[in-house]
């Protein structure tokens, strides 16, 4: 089980590198927001996979919290950016 899940973990980390590169490359703030949203979702899923791999609940709870609070923070940031754009 471990070797296959480790390989899957490597694939997921490679999948996470793409939006990190996209966030670094783009200049438009909304493209950067989009890429970083994808990074946060993928990072929390990777945390959950590691928690299943190690059978450790505490890491899993961190993943679930990152999933909900991280996206909520992004929503607030998006509204802030929109109001700054309108000024």
């Amino acid at each position: 089980m471990n070797s296959i899940l480790n390989f899957i973990l490597m694939l997921m980390i490679v999948a996470m590198l793409i939006p990190i590169y996209a966030a670094w490359k783009s200049n438009d703030v909304w493209q950067k927001m989009l890429a970083l949203t994808s990074v946060s979702t993928k990072a929390s899923i990777i945390i959950l996979v590691v928690s299943v791999l190690r059978d450790d609940w505490m890491i899993g709870v961190v993943g679930a919290i990152v999933l909900s609070v991280g996206n909520a923070g992004f929503m607030l940031l998006a509204h802030l950016l929109k109001r700054m754009d309108n000024k």
């Binding site: 927001m33 949203t37 979702t41 899993g60 909900s68 996206n71 998006a78 509204h79």
Partner: peptide
């Protein structure tokens, strides 16, 4: 834990996509 993660993913990710599209 995994069902909590699935539910929060379904809710928050969908909402975030809507907020980003709106903004």
């Amino acid at each position: 834990l995994l069902i909590l993660a699935i539910l929060s993913l379904a809710m928050w990710n969908t909402m975030l996509g809507y907020v980003l599209a709106y903004c």
